[in-house]
């Protein structure tokens, strides 16, 4: 489609602008503040970068793990043999979603100790459902006529899955992964409670120490990381969705 390239990317420019404004505002505001020694211990490039890196790493690892789990599981749940139990499985997982993330994080820690792995498991537990649900809906919404056309042409079941069902499910699956990433970035702030670091550390420090600059710095960074990840997800969605599918 001519001119489609432009429309495809329009509307994605606003997000980075918001993030840049937030970060710029934060920097200007911090420059005007007299930081005491406690505040300076947190608000320095090294520490902030480390916390940001931890946060991103945790989120990305968890999202990848979710993709690796949810895709095969979702494909399995849409095969004829299991198709009927899929709604039941999703409902059960949906009830599980009502358990608060903070509680799960703490319980896992009390049982398995502190650390990155426990935090990652909690993240995965929380972001699995949206992806799984979207894989199931994504494949489920593929027009049965297309599947029949594929079978009628002599494609094997596997070929129909790879050439028709999965490509057509990509947009919905990617939306699910993007949601998972956003949820992950949120749950990752709670990793501080189980000693897994991340930007939650800075926020909690700010609250505990009663230091507004620390609190605001942590919060703004945390918001920016989440917004940037969501934006990256949106870009990936546009880039990876097959053309010809709206």
């Amino acid at each position: 489609m001519s001119g489609g390239g432009r429309g495809r990317w329009a509307g994605l420019a606003a997000r980075p602008l918001v993030v840049a404004l937030l970060l710029g505002g934060l920097w200007l505001w911090l420059r005007g503040q007299e930081l005491d020694s406690i505040e300076r211990r947190t608000i320095n490039a090294d520490y902030l970068l480390r916390a940001t890196r931890e946060h991103l790493w945790l989120t990305v690892v968890a999202t990848l793990a979710v993709a690796a789990l949810a895709l095969p599981l979702g494909v399995l749940l849409t095969r004829p043999a299991l198709r009927r139990v899929a709604p039941g499985v999703l409902t059960v997982l949906g009830v599980g979603q009502a358990v608060p993330a903070y509680g799960v994080m703490v319980l896992l820690t009390l049982r398995f100790g502190v650390g990155f792995r426990v935090a990652a498991v909690a993240l995965v537990a929380y972001s699995l459902l949206p992806v799984l649900r979207n894989v199931v809906t994504g494949i489920g919404q593929v027009d049965p006529a297309l599947v029949e056309a594929g079978r009628g042409m002599g494609m094997s079941r596997a070929a129909v899955l790879w050439r028709i069902e999965l490509p057509l499910a990509v947009p919905v699956v990617l939306t699910g992964l993007r949601t998972a990433m956003v949820i992950g970035a949120g749950v990752a702030t709670l990793a501080t409670f189980v000693g897994a670091g991340g930007l939650g550390d800075i926020i909690i420090n700010g609250i505990k120490l009663g230091r507004t600059p620390v609190l605001v710095t942590g919060s703004v960074l945390c918001a920016c990381v989440a917004l940037a990840l969501d934006w990256a997800g949106a870009v990936a969605e546009r880039a990876l969705s097959p053309r010809g599918v709206s």
């Binding site: 027009d143 006529a145 297309l146 029949e148 056309a149 594929g150 079978r151 009628g152 042409m153 002599g154 494609m155 094997s156 050439r163 028709i164 490509p167 057509l168 097959p242 053309r243 010809g244 599918v245």
Partner: peptide, 29 residues
Amino acid sequence: NRLRRRIGYVIQQTGLLPHLTVGANVALV
């Protein structure tokens, strides 16, 4: 599957794969 490759099949809903170009659709079999 082998049998169906020897039999052309046209359906009412066309069954064209929306994510493939017209050329790629025709090239499938």
